[in-house]
């Protein structure tokens, strides 16, 4: 393993993140605050407790997941797409590194950034609502796993994308609806039965449910199922990346 190269890519990517640190923090803090004002205070005050948790607190795990998933994907996809776009990818291809090292560098950096933002949102949430974390270790583990798996997905999107429109397409058309319909703002049990069944096909449901369990000890689906789901998702992404590595698809002709 060329760990020096992994470290170089990681630091290079993190430097770019810290160059725009103000934007990186302000935007998630602002949007989360808006969610709390609108859903927590304005609308939330008229909503009963959900599964024994005040609505303002109930949406915290979902909000964190919403940001973390979006951030992981956009950071990783942009991170690898940008060198393709400006042509600096030649350096990655001609360096004595393998694809695993490239993935570790880019995905590691993208996941770190998303984790950083997730943490900031969690801290922001403490200012608005009372929350306690029932299973802190599980909470951190879920957060990290989500960052990594969606950064892997973002990496695949970045490799696949041929232009900036395509780079936005998957997050916009697939991920955002999945996250919004994945129970960020409600419990799946609040849906009509048909929609409950349909929701079970949404992988994000398992993530948010598991994450919420880590906070409040209540979940839509059993925690083991959640873990299996995120494990399977990570495995699929890894498999795809391995295939990309084998074939050089969209990277090395």
């Amino acid at each position: 393993m060329n760990w020096t190269a992994v470290k170089s890519i990681y630091i290079f990517e993190m430097t770019r993140f810290f160059r725009t640190i103000a934007q990186s923090i302000i935007s998630p803090v602002l949007s989360t605050s808006l969610y709390f004002v609108v859903f927590g205070a304005a609308i939330g005050s008229r909503i009963d407790e959900v599964e024994g948790v005040s609505y303002g607190a109930f949406i915290v795990p979902g909000l964190i997941m919403l940001s973390v998933i979006t951030q992981s994907i956009s950071n990783a996809s942009f991170g690898i797409y940008f060198p393709k776009f400006i042509g600096t990818i030649f350096e990655l291809l001609s360096a004595p590194i393998n694809f695993l090292e490239i993935v570790l560098g880019y995905v590691g950096a993208a996941a770190t950034k998303a984790l950083f933002i997730g943490t900031i949102i969690l801290i922001t949430a403490f200012f608005f609502v009372d929350i306690s974390i029932a299973h802190p270790v599980a909470m951190v583990a879920f957060l990290i796993l989500t960052c990594i798996s969606f950064a892997l997905m973002g990496f695949i999107i970045g490799i696949w994308a041929g232009n900036f429109e395509q780079l936005q397409l998957v997050p916009l058309l697939i991920v955002t609806p999945l996250v919004f319909l994945g129970g960020s703002f409600y419990s799946i049990s609040m849906l009509p039965p048909v929609w409950q069944v349909i929701s079970m096909f949404n992988p994000v449901v398992y993530l948010i449910s598991g994450f919420r369990w880590a906070f409040f000890d209540t979940a839509d689906v059993p925690i083991l199922t959640s873990l299996l789901a995120i494990g399977a998702f990570t495995a699929i992404c890894l498999g795809l990346i391995w295939w990309i590595f084998k074939t050089g698809w969209r990277i090395r002709e």
Partner: peptide, 9 residues
């Protein structure tokens, strides 16, 4: 510096 690191030096 990045280029040097990428080559594992």
């Amino acid at each position: 510096q990045f280029s040097r690191g990428l080559f594992g030096k």
